[in-house]
């Protein structure tokens, strides 16, 4: 769990807020470049570009 913190987008380097309650493997959207980011660690927050949704993803 994390309180709201800021870290940077690996694509555009702009700051990305991490809402409280975010967990590792959550997906957030960079507000600047709109790319989907996967949260790979918390405190400090780190992001990677989110893996693409694959053809057999679903429910």
């Amino acid at each position: 769990m994390s309180t709201a913190v800021l870290s940077t987008c690996p694509d555009c380097t702009d700051s990305v807020p991490v809402p409280a309650g975010t967990r590792v493997s959550s997906i957030v959207v960079c507000p600047a470049c709109k790319v989907e980011l996967e949260v790979i660690s918390l405190e400090p927050a780190e992001f990677a570009l989110a893996p693409e949704i694959e053809e057999d993803f679903g429910e």
Partner: peptide, 27 residues
């Protein structure tokens, strides 16, 4: 077992924690 933590997984993990069910997230 998870791939991504979406809203559903977040709610489920919150419920597991709230009820003190020992668990481990396996990506």
């Amino acid at each position: 077992l998870t791939t991504r933590v979406r809203l559903e997984e977040r709610l489920l993990l919150d419920a597991l924690e709230r009820r003190a069910v020992p668990h481990e997230v396996v990506d």
